[in-house]
């Protein structure tokens, strides 16, 4: 009888520790009076996936509004800046919305880490060879289902870049001064800022991030519906088509802005 090697022992203990840590939020939440049983039901594998689905779909909703707002770039600087200003005029409400959005992202990411860790625990020794029995690139996901965690991580990194670029305007590779030509009190010209970001070489992050988003959504949207129990032989084909259309409409919508920025760079508005 041979013993497992030290490194594999250590790896397993580390995985267990990660799972323990990821369980903490659920333990803490269940202390809130009145929601204990629901938190317990939500912290099973199925419960976590349902929460993933709900947060995922809410984030899809956010993407729709985000894209709708951004498409105003095509309408020109005036309209776009007006939209930006009216958003800023929400004041504290905007911060509340941002915190809400941030929470959604963190919940989605946290749940992803938690289920991912549990899934790793569920198969401690790997196959030396593993082949799919599905048709390659089968609809609805086009093979994307195996890439959810990877694309998710890419999107998370992209989010950091995106917030640094656009919200904080702290990208060290970009000179933001053209966006501040109306004086320090007036705040930045968002239209100019967007063009600055998207025409910089760092915009490559946007292409990568958005492609990852497309892949993530092309499985994620339909998958979220399935996790919420939406599956009926009469509607499945239509749902698959709608899911793919949704994923790539959003993605191409955003990507078009990158191309737009590149093609219109150097011209004034």
């Amino acid at each position: 009888m041979k013993c497992p090697t030290y490194s594999s022992w250590f790896r397993e203990r580390r995985l267990d520790a990660v799972c323990q840590i990821l369980r903490l939020p659920a333990v803490m939440l269940s202390q809130i009076p009145g929601i204990g049983p629901v938190v317990k039901a939500a912290s099973t594998t199925v419960g976590q996936k349902i929460l993933m689905a709900i947060t995922g779909l809410l984030l899809c909703g956010f993407l729709v509004t985000h894209l709708a707002g951004n498409l105003l770039l095509y309408a020109g600087a005036k309209q776009f800046n007006h939209y930006a200003e009216s958003l800023h005029s929400w004041g504290i409400l905007l911060n509340v919305a941002e915190v809400g959005l941030f929470t959604l992202f963190m919940a989605h990411i946290g749940l992803a880490c938690s289920t991912h860790a549990m899934n790793r625990q569920a198969r401690r020794s790997q196959y030396t060879q593993k082949e799919s029995k599905q048709e390659p690139m089968a609809l609805p996901s086009g093979g994307a289902s195996g890439w959810m965690f990877v694309t998710g991580v890419i999107i998370a990194f992209f989010l950091v870049v995106h917030i640094t670029d656009m919200r904080l305007k702290k990208n060290p590779f970009i000179d933001y001064s053209p966006a501040y030509q109306n004086g320090p009190e007036a705040g930045p010209d968002e239209f100019v800022a967007v063009r600055l970001v998207l025409t910089n070489w760092t915009a490559i992050a946007y292409v990568i991030g958005l492609l990852a988003l497309g892949i993530h959504l092309s499985h994620g949207f339909r998958s979220a519906l399935q996790t919420l129990g939406v599956n009926h032989p009469r509607w499945n084909r239509l749902l698959e088509i709608i899911s793919l259309l949704f994923a790539w409409t959003i993605t191409l919508g955003f990507l078009s802005l990158v191309t737009w920025a590149a093609m219109t760079s150097g011209t004034s508005n």
């Binding site: 569920a122 996901s141 996790t227």
Partner: peptide, 23 residues
């Protein structure tokens, strides 16, 4: 583990159980 809706189970199932049941 948990279900990531990859449908690999459906493809491997000798009794052709559909993921419709997972929903």
């Amino acid at each position: 583990g948990s279900c990531t809706n990859t449908s690999e189970c459906e493809a491997a199932c000798p009794a052709e159980i559909s993921v419709e049941h997972i929903a």
